[in-house]
């Protein structure tokens, strides 16, 4: 079965006067129909840029310089703008981090939902209204008719995100890219949203790319995980593989630094050092400067090594070699 989305060798660079930022550097991954992929990394790792690159929303001074994004057999990188527009919000939807910033504050929810319907389908306004209303109901928003007339500032954070989900699912997209959708929410609401997404994914067979910096969030939700560092995917595989048997030192560092995994009263484990500046990154493994296993070999860019179960990583000194 061919993948729904297949990213091959995607590179997105931002060129400024001070140099080139290789925000996304030669990444490849795929998402199958109905699959949930967790894209994990710190801020600045390039995960959001990956999401925007897939949708073709990279603006100058950024540019996709290499690679392909195959979606349902078509390469989105070379597809024209109007064709892309036809896909966005329709077959490929995006959920942003803070709907307070992304929903237009002076237009009602209804207006913004209806326009999304009408952008891709020639139906009457009444029909579009009905679909918007039903979509709100589906994400568990009560009294949807009153909500349609309301404005974004009249909703709570969790409500707004549900609205964003409702908008994203209006056309039953094949793939939803969610960029840190729960980061700004309370933990309890977070759980609700996660549950909501899971239901939708199951019910409609929607694939999901969940972009986050929080490993614990994807642990329960995702089928597969890809870990990004400094614009590169350093490890990818099934949730079980990556979380239980991490190979890349960064991944194991991430897992280790989750507070619940530490002993009560003991010092929290951290990954030493800081993320490097993406401006003019030197050759070789980007994690080198913070890795306790690094040596001269790491001055070369580590190749991708993949196991039979599809668990891949880029490291000359994978973790499991050091156990025991």
């Amino acid at each position: 079965m061919s993948a729904l989305l297949e990213v091959r060798g995607l590179s997105t660079h931002f060129t400024g006067r001070t140099g080139t930022v290789r925000a996304v550097d030669d990444i490849s991954f795929s998402v199958a129909r109905g699959q949930v992929l967790g894209l994990v990394g710190e801020s600045g790792s390039g995960k959001s840029v990956t999401g925007f690159s897939i949708l073709g929303l990279i603006d100058p001074p950024g540019r996709i310089v290499a690679g392909q994004v195959m979606f349902q057999g078509r390469n989105l990188v070379t597809l024209g703008e109007s064709a892309l527009r036809g896909l966005r919000g329709n077959r490929l939807a995006m959920i942003f981090q803070d709907p307070m910033l992304t929903l237009n504050p002076v237009l009602s929810i209804g207006t913004q939902m209806i326009e999304t319907v009408l952008a891709h389908e020639q139906v009457s306004r009444a029909e579009a209204y009905r679909r918007a209303r039903d979509s709100l109901g589906l994400v568990g928003i009560p009294s949807p008719e009153e909500r349609l007339a309301a404005y974004p500032h009249q909703f709570s954070g969790g409500m707004r995100q549900r609205v964003a989900i409702a908008i994203a699912t209006l056309h039953r997209p094949d793939l939803i890219i969610a960029d840190e959708p729960t980061t700004a929410l309370d933990v309890t609401i977070q759980a609700q949203i996660l549950a909501e997404m899971q239901t939708l994914s199951r019910d409609f067979g929607t694939a999901l790319i969940w972009i986050t910096h929080d490993l614990s969030v994807v642990a329960g939700l995702a089928d597969a995980i890809a870990v990004m560092y400094a614009g590169r995917i350093v490890e990818a595989g099934s949730v079980a593989d990556v979380l239980d048997r991490p190979r890349h030192p960064y991944t194991s560092g991430l897992i280790g630094s989750v507070p619940s995994r530490n002993q009560r009263g003991a010092r929290l484990r951290q990954i030493p050092g800081n993320t490097p500046s993406l401006l003019n990154l030197p050759e070789g493994c980007a994690f080198r400067s913070r890795c306790s296993y690094a040596d001269t070999a790491c001055a070369q860019n580590p190749p991708l090594s993949e196991s039979a179960s599809g668990h891949s990583s880029r490291c000359f000194h994978p973790v499991h070699e050091h156990v025991g």
Binding site: R85, F96, A119, I167
Partner: peptide
Amino acid sequence: KYARARGL
């Protein structure tokens, strides 16, 4: 950006 992401 969000409006563009929705294909408007």
